Simulated scan of single mutants.
Amino acid sequence: MDIKELNQLLKLPNNKFEGHLILKGHDIIWTLHFVQGRLIYAADGLHGVRRWNYTINQNFPKFKLNIAAAQLSTHQYWQLYLLDQGFKEQQLSLVRAKLLLRAVIQECLFELSQCTYVTSEWQPAELPVSRLCCTIALSPWEIDIILNKVNDMQQAWQHLGMTGTSPQLSPTLKNPVNHQHLPISHQYLTGTYTLWQIATNLAQPIEEVAKPLIPLIQDQSLELKKLPDLPLANVQLSPMSLSRVPDNATAVSMPQQSSVIRSSPISAKPYELVP
């Protein structure tokens, strides 16, 4: 999907609409939340908990909410609930919350840009967030900046020969390798971190993380594997609650609603989760 098609999708909700834009492609579901026509969060059906954890840990390492993870099961769109609670408990600042939001949305839009076929469904709804939380919703100008960045990422990803390979995959060493010869720390090549998470932890662009790994992939020393999501009970609510990702973690599926207001197919470029 090219940037023009992505931009077309994001303009479906006008400034009078509030609700969820559900996008489906290759058995993956993305939910984009809009308030007054502005994008306030994006989540995918694969790594909602993982993405929240590493993004919140990067932007708010001291983030702590006085709620239990068990409470989240009662909230269909739990990320919006946590953002709102973060403002109410004064754990989030507007500036850094914007940075968090941009990082999450940029990742989701990049993944969408790799899809071959996407259908869209608009679900009107009143978002359960405060006015203060609504102020972090992205303006059209901010969306344009993100789309320009996604376009640059597309070109860099294609130049690396990684088209069709998802950053949600996890690099995993197949054979013993001298740790001193590895381009990044061995801990990131044990099948417990996605490429997105590694890039976030190292504060590097995704293409810079992937580039030195390509020779290892080519000589079959390294493979990229699918990684399930963490259970919702493992969502980060305090600095101590972010635990190591278990290899056999149970995936969290995105709740779906039945009402459909608009549905339209869009074709684009190849994208798969399997490298």
Rank of each mutant, 00 (worst) to 15 (best):
M1Y: 06
N7Y: 05
Q8K: 13
P13T: 00
K16R: 14
H20K: 13
L23G: 03
L23Y: 04
D27F: 07
H33G: 04
F34K: 02
V35D: 12
Q36N: 13
Q36H: 14
G37F: 04
Y54P: 06
N57W: 09
Q58H: 15
P61A: 03
K62M: 10
A68I: 05
A69G: 04
A70S: 14
A70E: 13
H75R: 15
H75N: 10
Y77R: 12
Y77I: 07
W78G: 00
L80V: 02
L82Q: 06
G86R: 06
G86P: 00
E89T: 07
Q91K: 13
L92G: 04
L92F: 05
L99S: 12
L101G: 12
L101E: 09
R102T: 13
V104H: 04
L112V: 09
Q114R: 14
C115D: 12
Y117Q: 12
T119V: 03
E126P: 08
L127N: 04
I143Y: 05
I145V: 13
M153V: 10
W157E: 02
S170N: 03
P171E: 06
T172V: 06
L173T: 05
K174S: 13
N175M: 11
S185N: 15
T192H: 15
I206C: 11
I206W: 08
A210Q: 05
K211V: 07
I217A: 06
Q218H: 14
L222I: 06
L232M: 11
A233M: 12
V235E: 00
M240W: 08
S243Q: 12
D247V: 10
S263C: 12
S264Q: 15
I266Q: 10
S267C: 07
P270L: 04
V274N: 12
